[in-house]
Amino acid sequence: MWLLRFSTSSIGKKILMASSGLLLILFLVAHAAGNAAIFFGSNAFQTYADTLHSLPVVVFVFGVGLFAVLIVHIFIGIQLFLQNRKETASRYAVSTKVCENTLASSTMPYTGLLLLLFLLVHVFGFGVNPTDTKVSVLVVNLLGNFFYGLFYLFSFCVLAVHLSHGFWSMLQTFGFNHPRYNDGIMKITYIVPGFFLVFFGAITLYFMTGLGANY
């Protein structure tokens, strides 16, 4: 079947990796837009959360969709990692990287796994909520904890590193590469992860530093 052939070919896998990555970035944008409510006070934030939860169908569809996308991204990522590791496994007595930007690109599987860990922590912290604490309170409790906050900050840095290769890589995979636009693309490659780092980092710092203590 052509779709199976496509998705098992090396370029097909690339494309699926890039497409799922794009969807995850779009999700992050939506997530960030929702979280922007935090800066408008605890009521605004709580209202946003309650509104969201009053639409269980939407939450369910998005949740399942997101989960599927994530599974594709992780599954293919791991597959690529394992296949490529067969090749990489210390091929040369001396190994030298000729290229710049290799920290991000050569650590993609590892930053990816760290982000998965973060995701689990994040979902268990905010998603699984047995005591029915209001989310606007929960956020203060959790991020007000110094080490918890530090872990969040660290994870956002990891996200920025992951995206600093991932975003450009996605565009390259989709075939965007033209001398006229490449400079611009390089800039966006740093702007996008920078934005997420600053935005999510600001939320965390807001609570960590005690600024949001009276939330």
Binding site: K14, K86, C99, S106, G175
Partner: peptide
């Protein structure tokens, strides 16, 4: 192996073949 856009190929290519060609291949 699978390409993961690491650009090492382009950097060592004695004929400076650009990865722009890889983008074109993907399309």
């Amino acid at each position: 192996g699978n390409c993961t856009n690491l650009r090492e190929c382009e950097a060592v290519c004695p004929k400076s073949i650009s990865i722009r060609n890889i983008a074109r291949l993907n399309r």
